[in-house]
Design a protein around this nucleic acid. Structure first.
Lengths: 279, 279
DNA sequence: GGATTAATTTCGCCG
DNA sequence: CGGCGAAGTTAATCC
């Protein structure tokens, strides 16, 4: 438990307004030490892998995690504008680079007089700091190129705790298994995750008349997709069992949309309103 | 265009090892100035809203965005361990708080001698820095309580750019519309997003024999859910049109899983392999 | 590693 | 604001 405790000791190293070379060293050191590294500054971003994307120059916050994840955040949105999943190798390097290569904010100079001769034809070279995160299976690559870095930080710490979450579909399942009458009086659960040719049924059981019941659980209000899912299981189970067997399909969720309600009716399926947690 | 340019000028303010009071002031100031604020330190996290969760003390990186988003990141994973969507109000305050309230790392003291009398019964009060992000519709609240703050930063900048992304389902749709023969010779697209009682069809058209065709597009390998979706649209369209109309359903994707293939066959649906981008 | 499905999914579009 | 479906979804679980 105490091995490499020094590496995980809580501390943070920060550089403000560093030169690109100094930023590069600090980032490389942070990656080596398996710290959580953040970089803030003006950058462009390129991604290529499952899809492809480019992002022109803007001010963004980049986070490199020791597990290989990379996150590029703008000042808006919960989701990063670009990212890389855990399992990547992070690299950082400085290079002299032709400034014309990413002239992303040069377009704003429109409307000038025709006599303007300020078209910059000389090849300005600028130093650039590049972050590269690569993984395979599937092969994908993220490139973040900074021309200005305002801050670099490397954070170390420990987090051995696990999130305790309630209100999930699993909670709803337990609630129904603990009190099957919540579905309807006489319902008897026989199996969970029962496999069919179309996938696994959440709860498989029978009603008080001995009819087979397929229960599909959703932790929140459901739409047409959940109805299709239930229908798929009912169909498959009907095929798996004797052809003449009656199979009831019951969707359990807090509520359904109108369209879902209609689809349920069309296919002879039922709905029971129930939430993951009581009260 | 130049209004409040000073507010958006690129800069970063950082405090290292601040007192909780100083951290509180800096965070409050950053929120006021609509900066992107980050806090690193040891904290506990509570969430209550669409679900509920608690997280014991650990070292984490918290980001507060000016649009109201909040992100709590550990050193692992692409996803934040806790978060709040855009649209929240961020608040920060310091308070003296009973240390027993969250004694989350006191459990590690096991294995001591039986004569230990160090059980801290005196009520230690500790100053605590609390971040609170709240929104309504749906009502949900995130609480992050720090007992130590190692760093606070406030970042300002501009990002007017938009991500240019390719390899999406929209690309696949355009590819098929530009060259309908990629589906099959003689296919004629008639509409996109054609509405049915079960939802909108990606591409609606007819084959060279005049039969109605429903095309469902997926940018990547598909499983049973996509087959269900296609089936839903074919069923609905069959109901919408004359009862005797023949409706073909074609799934277009790079590939399908075995189970999906089986479901397609069972329901008389077809599959064409095609990727979002050529080559 | 692939398949399947949940998720505090998030996000965008549209009525 | 709610409904609906895509997403470079991510993440967990099972095989």
């Amino acid at each position: 438990m105490t091995h490499s405790q020094q590496d995980q000791e809580l501390h943070a190293v920060t550089l403000e307004q560093p030169t690109l070379a100094a930023a590069c060293d600090a980032i490389a050191d942070g990656i080596d030490r398996e710290a959580l590294v953040t970089v803030f500054g003006r950058c462009t971003v390129e991604y290529d892998g499952r899809a492809s994307s480019t992002l022109d120059a803007g001010d963004r916050h980049v986070m490199l995690k020791p597990d290989g994840a990379a996150l590029v955040h703008t000042d808006e949105g919960q989701q990063p504008v670009n990212w890389q999943p855990p399992g990547c190798d992070h690299e950082v390097f400085c290079e002299r680079r032709d400034a014309d290569a990413d002239r992303s904010d040069a377009a704003e100079t429109a409307g000038g007089t025709a006599t303007e001769t300020e078209t910059e034809t000389e090849t300005e070279t600028t130093e650039t700091l590049t972050l590269e995160s690569v993984r395979s299976t599937p092969g994908e690559r993220l490139l973040v190129r900074f021309r200005n870095v305002l801050q670099v930080s490397a954070f170390s710490g420990t987090d051995e705790t696990e999130l305790a979450l309630s209100g999930t579909e699993e909670d709803l399942r337990q609630r129904l298994l603990d009190e099957p009458d919540l579905l309807e009086p006489g319902f008897t659960p026989l199996a969970t995750e029962r496999d069919t040719a179309a996938g696994a049924i959440d709860i498989y059981g029978e009603d008080d008349a001995g009819r087979t019941v397929v229960v599909e659980l959703k932790r929140r209000r459901v739409g047409p997709d959940a109805v299709s899912q239930l229908r798929r299981y009912v169909d498959a189970l009907g095929r798996d069992l004797h052809a003449d067997a009656t199979v009831r399909g019951i969707l359990v969720a807090p509520s359904v949309t109108d369209r879902a309600k209609r689809l349920l009716t069309e296919h002879g399926l039922e709905f029971i309103s129930l939430e993951p947690t009581a009260a």
